[in-house]
Design a binder for these strands. Structure first.
Lengths: 344, 344
DNA sequence: AAACGCTTGTAAAACGATTTAATGTTCGGC
DNA sequence: GCCGAACATTAAATCGTTTTACAAGCGTTT
């Protein structure tokens, strides 16, 4: 499958183009970067030559000279997480819109890899980084080091607001509160909160919100909330949790994310429990699958895509503006009530 | 949050380190790249200095000089697709293992963006590219151009085998055949194949395999196969398809992927149809959710992760070896039978 | 005709890391 | 005390692109 006469001899540089077009390298560079500075006839000839010899700009050389490469790093702790994935897509799109290129890094749940990716981005001299997972051990330090070198950093999925950087997050406490209010309004009183067996800030915040809703309830004395755990490694095997819930006489289950909820749903169906008559069930994240279950699952939706676009805009603004005020934006989650809590 | 006295003045280069350590830049470089060539005492001092001044290697400068940067591009047509996502993870892991860094590019279903990403990778001078989506219009040409510049390219999710590159894929025709054989063996005769409304090679291959299984059946005259479509944009709204299936008197449904199958499942449950007594249901891809449904879904599992690792190994081998024989590896899918076809 | 401005084009010096070839240094052996 | 080998270090060239400062050409104005 031979194209035109192959040019096996290494890379073709701007000098080769210059020679072939009978101009100087500087002119070729001008054609590429400030076309208005070169006469139309010359410009055309150079462009033709570029096409003919198959020249492609060497980004390394360019960046070396330029110093700002208009590249952003997008640090995703786990691309399997739909929250982060949507966020990444919003970020990618926005960056593109503003003419920035994006280096997408997935740490696949490994803290160690996340830190390696930070080092990688540092070596790549990206202008800014959009980072998730900053609360993982060691990650915050690595990001601080990055920032001290002048790289702009915006944190995502982290609503705290006292550090010297921008951040964008969702108000998880409010999300939990929404769920609590919803369940209590429906008359549920014994609520199980099912979460994972490793500490994870957002999940804890959701529980706090749930508890606040309970405390605010007029009949708060009658409300009971219990925290249960499932193993992070085997979400689909929430068997013990399901058993504990059935044995515990709960009339509602709030699970810290949708996959857990769906696993529980399946267990409940097998046990002959009807949702929501016997037990109301609600998840978090509103994954596409939630609305597709036989009993559509109530869930809390987060404006993930917008998180990504907003964070990216903040980051780009910080990269462009020298005097820049750090901002902390917290988005509000919204509850989508479906059959699994409302009934039909 | 100030660490040690910040060094706001731009980047610290190898020269700065050299000056601070009282050696020449060459020595610093040697410490970094061939530590055995420098006396232990000097080495230690240089390393300390690097740490003290916070030096980070400038990848652009390094790559410019080196020419081979041991970087691979990972071109993913759609990171939402679990098949490609798993593949990407396998690839990433393997690349890491061999000391290659990875530039992960997600085209988010846009052909135009995919092509831009190819150009981006070309400018980055990556050594090789692992590409999906090569059958999309224009992508093949862009990859050819890349290859003509000397970049190694391995195709994924593409079982064809006559071009001048390696490729790795799954035998989709066989996958369809497995499903057909399974359903026929269970006594099903009127089979609906539900796919999306845009042409997609792997999905068509699955149908072909299904038809072959039917043709091979001793009682092939009694077997009926019909192809139905759902809109790509609204998988969860396969309402018409579900209605058509119920009206059509089918006793089995094979859907081209799991999300479609799960959507249909939900519709069937609402219509009071029991699975698999009235209609057997089987999907494709074996997503985690498949086994979590109240009626666990039969599906076809592809060795996606291994696809990624194998493809990456081929790519790296091609990058390292000058004389390299192109290979075409086709993996075999396997059927996981669950309640949705077997019953209890 | 001299002076000026405007348009095009170019030579040459960066950018930071690597590497080759050469220069110092040290030290054991005689 | 001298020679050569082995070791440690370095000066300088190089990678490809961008940019600054300048030169050349040419038309217009005075």
């Amino acid at each position: 499958m031979s194209g035109p006469a192959d040019r096996p001899t290494g890379v073709v540089s701007i000098k080769d183009v210059a020679a072939a077009a009978g101009v100087s390298p500087a002119t070729v560079s001008n054609v590429l970067n400030r076309p208005e500075r070169v006469a139309p006839a010359t410009r055309r000839k150079v462009l033709e030559t570029i096409d003919a010899v198959g020249y492609v700009r060497n980004a390394s050389a360019s960046r070396l000279r330029i110093l700002d490469n208009y590249a952003l790093g997008l640090l995703i702790a786990d691309i399997e997480n739909p929250f982060l994935r949507n966020l990444a897509q919003g970020a990618q799109e926005t960056a593109e819109e503003y003419g920035y290129s994006v280096l997408l890094c997935d740490a696949a749940r490994s803290t160690e890899r996340l830190i390696r990716q930070i080092d990688f981005l540092a070596e790549q001299q990206v202008t800014g980084v959009l980072a998730s997972g900053s609360t993982l051990p060691g990650v915050g330090d690595a990001l601080d080091k990055l920032r001290s070198r002048g790289t702009k950093v915006v944190l995502v999925d982290e609503a705290e607001g006292t550090f010297d950087h921008c951040s964008v997050g969702v108000d998880d406490e409010r999300g939990g509160w929404l769920v609590g209010s919803h369940l209590l309004e429906l008359g549920r009183r014994r609520i199980a909160y099912v979460t994972i067996d490793v500490p994870f800030r957002p999940f804890d915040d959701r529980l706090a919100g749930l508890r606040r809703a309970a405390a605010q309830h007029p009949d708060s004395a009658s409300v009971e909330i219990e925290r249960l755990e499932v193993s992070l490694e085997s979400l689909d095997d929430g068997g013990e949790a399901a058993a504990a819930i059935l044995a515990g006489g709960f009339d509602a289950v709030f699970s810290a994310n949708d996959p857990i909820a769906i696993g529980l749903y399946s267990k409940f169906v097998h046990a002959g429990v009807s949702i929501p008559e016997d037990i109301a069930l609600i998840g978090y994240d509103d994954v596409p699958m939630a609305s597709m279950l036989p009993v559509p699952l109530s869930s809390v939706r987060q404006p993930t895509r917008m998180l990504g676009t907003t964070a990216t805009k903040l980051l780009i603004e910080e990269c462009a503006d020298d005097d820049h005020e750090h901002q902390h934006v917290a988005f509000r989650p919204s509850l989508t009530a479906r059959t699994s809590t409302l009934g039909t």
